[in-house]
Design a protein around this nucleic acid. Structure first.
Length: 561
DNA sequence: GCCGTTTTCGGCCCGACTGTTTTCAGTCG
């Protein structure tokens, strides 16, 4: 059992205790324990019961629950309290804008699930309840509608994990099986509803047999069509489809299943691309594009927009790949809310073959994340100097993720700001803004001479909350004017800048930076999700800040300052 | 429930923001 799974159980238990009116101090100690354990670089499932008890903020009671959870899957106190709580109430705890107190109140009022809650909102009943009001009701309604819209969608890492699991599983028995990921995951969308593959038709009986017996899959009934296997991944529920295709038509089908409707519907000599592809047998997608006299369009780019013209003129760019990246910008350490020390982060980057790390802990306003006071900034800078002296072929850049304050200013005075090599400016609080206000706030931060990179421009959390509304054209224009790069925050919950804006940023001459926003050394390669996002928008290595060599990046930072 | 001790009970208690209120409760990062 992973740390996250164990800690999720403890957090849920604490929420339920609060819902049932337990002592607040007791509840707080569960939250404290989780908060501290999240930052510990240890594997909970590997510690002995005695070692667990010795951890800070963990005593006999919590150690016992962790121990039971990892052996039995769930500790019995959680099982019991869940049995006393309607499932719909537990579900409500996840809705943005609803905390324990409000859920408690709704429960007492007889509203026991989200369907009832939505209906009550539509009937204007929530606004009339004590402690609620028009705005709260509307916020709840919006959260519920957002959830409904996102239902059945998954973040890239979990979808990718399932896809890789399936590939490994089939190849374990059939190493030579031609199998290819197609569909939305291959196209690199920010969230995923289903996994699609094509497999060689000649292997159909064996593959169907294997899939029907896969311990992690649930076949759809009735099953076993002649051309496809359908089902879902048991635990996650994500849909899976494997289509059987002969080698002769492999390219035709791969193409038909790995492009957006607009790309498929684009016309070529009075026919759509889809018609062109399926009316003939193409063994490879390359052969299909060649038959049009076009360059090969990578699956991520097949959106039916700018790529069509570039393909027809054979001027498609060579897209960014993982091996182009020379370093990591935007990472946190134990100075703020990261899990690993500055030195551990640096050494993890060295181990991955990177040439530099731009460390960017939170700034002082981000109290909840242990943001750095001026004193701590100076301390960190001193440590960076010391470490840099130790590493001959590696460089730590002094950075900060500075909060953009409500008025658009940055978080430190000039004497501190000028000590950094670079500054990522991000909004972390005060999301309730009109698009005008948000745009103005961002532009003021972009115009600050110390801002090097604009961090996660909309603040969205995929499948969880919409970002603040932004007039993105204006923000991109301001970045172009002020030579500020824009981050593609590669955390799979963000992927912000959205790929739909990458092209405009490139056209305006804005540099992009694929940033992992790492809070531990294990998440440096979250950058892979950002690479996908960039590729969808046509991002190339030369326009990506962290493909620069250490020397070029130093020069870039110096010029900016 | 955890911690720390003047060692077995008493103290623990973020802070900005929002939307309710009419001085504050609830939420959230």
């Amino acid at each position: 059992m992973t740390n996250a799974e164990i800690l999720d159980q403890i957090t849920l238990y604490a929420q339920l205790l609060e819902l049932h009116g337990e002592n607040p101090f007791k509840i707080r100690s569960y939250h404290y324990a989780v908060q501290h354990l999240e930052k510990q670089d240890i594997e909970l499932s590997k510690l002995t019961a005695l070692e667990l008890e010795k951890l800070p903020n963990v005593g006999k009671a919590i150690a016992g629950k962790i121990d039971e959870a990892r052996t039995n899957g769930q500790f019995h106190q959680l099982t019991e309290i869940l049995a006393k709580t309607p499932a719909g109430i537990v579900d409500m705890l996840d809705i943005a804008g609803l905390g324990i107190k409000k859920v408690q109140f709704l429960w007492q009022a007889g509203i026991e699930d989200t369907a009832m809650l939505l209906q009550a909102c539509e009937e204007n009943k929530i606004a009339e309840m004590k402690g609620f009001g028009d705005k709260t009701q509307e916020n709840i309604r919006q959260s519920l509608l957002f959830r409904i819209k996102q239902e059945g969608r998954y973040h890239l890492p979990e979808a990718t994990f399932c896809a890789e699991q399936l590939e490994k599983y089939l190849h374990a028995t059939l190493p030579a099986l031609p199998l290819m990921l197609v569909g939305e995951l291959r196209q690199g969308y920010e969230t995923i509803a289903s996994l699609q593959f094509i497999a060689d038709l000649a292997y159909r009986p064996q593959v169907q047999e294997l899939l029907n017996n896969a311990p992690f899959l649930l076949p759809e009934m009735p099953q076993n069509s002649l051309f496809a296997w359908a089902g879902k991944v048991k635990e996650l529920g994500i849909a899976v489809e494997v289509r059987f295709v002969g080698q002769a038509r492999w390219g035709s089908e791969a193409f038909a299943l790995s492009a957006s409707p607009k790309h498929l519907g684009a016309t070529f000599k009075q026919k759509t691309l889809l018609q062109m592809a399926v009316s003939q047998d193409f063994a490879t997608e390359e052969a299909f594009y060649q038959s049009l006299g076009w360059g090969y369009v990578p699956a991520e780019m097949r959106e039916g927009t700018f790529e069509l013209e570039l393909a027809s003129k054979n001027t498609l760019p060579t897209l960014l790949t993982a091996k182009d990246l020379k370093g990591v910008l935007h990472a946190h350490s134990t100075y703020s809310d990261g899990k690993h020390s500055l030195q551990q982060m640096a050494e993890a980057c060295i181990a991955e073959g990177f040439g530099y790390l731009g460390i960017t802990d939170h700034s002082k306003t981000a109290m909840y994340a242990g943001g750095l006071s001026e004193g701590r900034v100076l301390q960190q800078i001193a440590e960076i100097d010391k470490l840099n002296a130790q590493y001959p072929n590696f460089r730590i850049f002094k950075g900060i993720e500075s909060d953009i304050l409500p008025d658009g200013s940055l978080d430190y005075a000039e004497d501190i700001l000028k000590k950094f090599d670079f500054v990522i400016a991000s909004i972390h609080a005060g999301f309730k803004m009109t698009a005008e206000k948000a745009t103005e706030r961002l532009i003021k931060a972009i115009e600050n001479p110390y801002t090097t990179i604009l961090g996660h421009p909309t603040g969205r959390l995929l499948l969880r909350r919409e970002g603040y509304p932004v007039h993105m054209e204006k923000v991109i224009e301001a970045c172009a004017q002020n030579k500020v790069a824009i981050e593609i925050n590669a955390n799979a919950w963000r992927l912000d800048l959205d790929w739909r804006w990458v092209r405009l940023a490139l056209e305006k001459g804005v540099m992009l930076s694929v940033n992992p926003d790492s809070h531990s050394k294990d998440s440096l390669w979250d950058m892979r999700w950002g690479i996908l996002t960039g590729r969808k928008g046509g991002l190339t290595a030369s326009r990506t800040l962290n493909t620069f060599s250490t020397e070029s990046l130093t020069e870039y930072f110096n010029q900016k300052r």
